[in-house]
Simulated scan of single mutants.
Amino acid sequence: MSKSARNKNARKTKNALTQRETPWGAIAFFTLIGVVATVVIGYAFMQSRPSSADDASIAGMVTKDGLGRDHTTSPVKYETDPPMGGDHDAAWNNCNGRVYDAPLRNENAVHSLEHGAVWFAYRPGLPAAQLDALKAKVTGTDYTFLSPYPSLDAPIVLSAWGRQLKLQDASDKRADQFLRAFVKGPQTPEPGAPCDGGKDTP
């Protein structure tokens, strides 16, 4: 066989190997699966954690940064009433959807805030229907707790670490915004630390 014939046969063999059909159907399928998965994960993340712009849009919310985090057995003089962070007792109040019937010690409640809990405080004498609405909201949401707080200057105050919101009515939609933003929120020093195994009494 001549050299030119051998080269021609080699080119034919090479072309047969390289001209295999590209599996466009499989590529398109897995690309689509990847895109859908990315969209779903992104949407779930956005639903579970609002952006800082959303957090800031909660009308009337007070913000305080740079709060102390030391443990102490002494009473702490807090800047706000109720407090929304600062030095605190080494024991936290259980905050796994817990409803308390008596006022809590601030120093224990603040430790719960450090773990990512939202504290619902209400002024004694709150109408029964509103109190029931708060109880339903708290018992259905982990990392929350509810207690009376006699010295409140508003009927209801929601506190998270470094964040606080005063409400006149339990039906105020800002309560749900606050929960979405600050249950184990991004500003929390120890988000997801235990909410049980602490103090179950005031």
Rank of each mutant, 00 (worst) to 15 (best):
I58K: 01
K12N: 07
F30S: 11
A56V: 09
T141E: 05
T18A: 11
A175M: 05
H115K: 08
M84A: 02
L158F: 03
H115R: 08
P75D: 13
T13R: 15
D70P: 00
Q19M: 11
D153V: 01
S74V: 00
A91K: 13
A154E: 05
A121P: 00
A91G: 04
T73P: 00
A128T: 11
K166S: 14
W119Y: 15
N96A: 14
Q164G: 08
T38P: 02
T31E: 05
G140W: 04
T18R: 15
E114T: 06
Y78W: 06
V39E: 07
P83W: 08
Y122N: 05
F29V: 08
A175E: 05
A136D: 08
P83H: 09
I58M: 05
A56C: 02
L167V: 00
A44E: 12
F45I: 12
V157P: 03
P186S: 14
A109N: 07
M46R: 14
L167D: 00
N106M: 07
M46S: 15
T22F: 14
A109Y: 06
G162S: 03
V62H: 08
F145D: 04
K12Y: 09
V35F: 10
E190F: 11
T188I: 01
A28N: 10
H71S: 08
Q177N: 08
G34S: 12
E107A: 09
L17N: 13
E21N: 14
P50M: 10
A56F: 06
A128E: 15
P150E: 10
K64T: 14
T31I: 04
T31G: 14
A53P: 07
Y149E: 04
W119T: 07
T144N: 06
